[in-house]
Computed example of a mutant assay.
Amino acid sequence: MSIADDVQKELMQVRREAIELHSSDQVQEAIAKLAFAVTEAYSGKVPVFVTIMNGGMIFAAELVKRLDFPLEMDYLHASRYLGETTGGDVEWLVTPNASLAGRHVLIVDDILDVGTTLLSIIRACEAQGAASVKTCVLVDKQHDRKAEPGLKADFTALEAADHYLFGMGMDYKGFWRNAPGIYAVKEGNE
């Protein structure tokens, strides 16, 4: 058996043993509800939505197709994980191309876990002179290890218990972002 076979075997086992926390239908319903709140907040403005790659791309795509107002889309790539299951220092891989000066910025990401990366991005947008900076996440992971006490996103679709999560953009060692629901990795597989 090759290394690739071992990796695929591990990935299939993780998916098979995972606990479904939110089904695909539940995720889609939560995103649809969130779209109403985002529309209310940004209708009449021309915001720039900055998606955090790679995790935020699936959620951002699902969200923006439900919005009926003009917006600009951009992205950035900053990570504490880089394919690992535990985070390190924030690394900036790609910065947004759009000028954020005077703009209403909505940062879109898959998950608010500790929040170190998100806070770093908020500060960077503010330093560029954004008129406002708000955050929008698919999942807020519930625990008491937030980078700042009481840290919350401005817009949150779902909450999840403190497990290692994958699906809908969240990954397990770089894989399973494509899983249609939100899953918790079985303890021992983390």
Rank of each mutant, 00 (worst) to 15 (best):
L158P: 02
G83E: 01
A153L: 11
G169A: 04
T156G: 00
F166N: 00
D68A: 08
D171K: 02
Y42I: 13
V137Q: 02
A35T: 05
C125E: 04
N97W: 07
K134E: 14
Q128H: 11
L34T: 08
F166W: 00
D154I: 10
L76G: 02
M170E: 00
A18T: 04
P96R: 07
S43M: 09
A161Q: 13
V14K: 02
E159L: 06
L76R: 02
R16H: 13
V133L: 08
S43T: 13
G174E: 00
A147I: 06
I19K: 14
F69D: 05
Y42F: 15
V94F: 11
H22R: 10
I122V: 15
G55S: 05
H22Y: 10
M53T: 12
G88N: 12
M12R: 15
A124D: 12
L21M: 03
R123P: 00
G56K: 03
I58H: 05
H22V: 09
L71S: 07
Q128S: 11
F49H: 08
D110H: 00
E10I: 14
H143Y: 11
A30G: 08
I19T: 14
M170C: 00
P70W: 07
V108P: 02
P96L: 01
E29L: 14
Y42G: 05
G169P: 04
V48W: 02
L82A: 14
E187D: 13
F175I: 02
I31N: 06
E148W: 11
R145M: 12
Q13D: 12
N54M: 08
V46D: 06
I121Q: 08
H77N: 11
Y81H: 12
A161R: 13
V133I: 10
T95K: 15
A131K: 14
Y75S: 13
I31L: 07
A30M: 10
A130Q: 05
Y75L: 11
P96T: 04
E62K: 14
I58V: 13
D154G: 11
R177T: 03
K134H: 10
E126L: 12
T51P: 03
A124P: 02
Q8Y: 08
E126R: 15
Q26R: 14
V139F: 01
E187G: 13
E159C: 08
Q128E: 14
E29A: 15
H104L: 03
K65P: 05
G181K: 04
E62A: 13
D89I: 09
K65R: 15
T85C: 04
P149M: 03
A61N: 11
V105L: 11
L118S: 05
M1H: 09
A30Q: 06
R177A: 01
H77A: 10
R15H: 12
Y164G: 03
A153P: 13
T116V: 12
Y75G: 07
E17G: 01
A161Y: 04
Q13G: 12
K45C: 10
L93G: 06
I107S: 04
R66Y: 08
E10G: 03
A4N: 07
K9W: 10
L71F: 15
A184W: 00
V46A: 07
I19M: 12
L165F: 00
Q28F: 09
K45Y: 13
V64I: 15
G169H: 05
G55K: 00
R80V: 01
L119V: 14
